[in-house]
Amino acid sequence: MSQYVFQQLINGLSLGSLYALVAIGFSMIYGIVRLINFAHGDLVMIGAFSTLGFVAMGVPWPLILVFVLMIGALAGMTIEATIFRPMRGAQQVTGFIATLAVSIVIQNVGLMTLSGQPRNFSFPAFMRQRVQLGSVSASVTDLSIIGLTLLLIALLLVVVYRTRLGTAMRATADNLMAARLMGIAVNRTILFAFAIGSGLAAVAGLMWGGKFGQIDPLLGFAPGLKAFIACVIGGVGSIGGAMLGGYLLGLAEVLFVGLLPPAFSGYRDVFVFTMLIIILLLKPSGLFVRHVEERA
């Protein structure tokens, strides 16, 4: 494999990792409360700026990772408990509009307090080195993003499929009323889903900053939207679908640009959205979901 193709592949996988991390949380939240959460991308921004803050304070990187995860989780839980929970009984569109409002509030508070000026963001020097793998090489940053993402996803799957709380969360997503009748405190499992999803998004923010080198208070918009698309591609509400959708989207974006003549590179989003439309026409419930259960 030529270095060029390999580089594109690694690029696609690392971008896909970011999309997958954000998409998984998006999907978990939709799965449990049927809420299209457009504020989810802004947790990426919160994660990126928290990282910057911790770096300025001289916190070591492994601790920063843990702290950012916790800050994301706390932010997500706060939003859920104060804004989304009181709207639970309302129509779906009410919740949807509320998430847009939350997103605008977060972005504007960010602009006011942090200024709209992009800030430089850099990982430690060794992260910017390249590793030689036979005839090809890849950056430590990209490899770390891919590796850490896979590790986090593995941990998530263990929590969701092997623990009592994870099972209760799936039960709540499956049938809220039955979950309540079994004595599951559903507000707690919903809070838990928000904590996990938002924590993952914040970690994606840390990675986002390291990968692109600059952050600003509006950076959450793109990953939020892409996560939504990844979920739709994969099948909304399924963790595996969101993950695969994220990787597919990341790879598609990078490969469209990288493997086609440079004249087409400006059409990147056109290709991506055309792909989305075609997938939705052929498989409306997403690529990786066998059936969709309608729920009132």
Binding site: R164, T167, A168, R170, A171, A173, D174, N175, M177, A178, A179, L181, M182, G183, I184, E293
Partner: peptide, 19 residues
Amino acid sequence: RQIFHSLSVEENLSMGGYL
């Protein structure tokens, strides 16, 4: 009935014993 469709039979039963 309102069983959990996506959970296994085993998991459904374990949710009965959740508390």
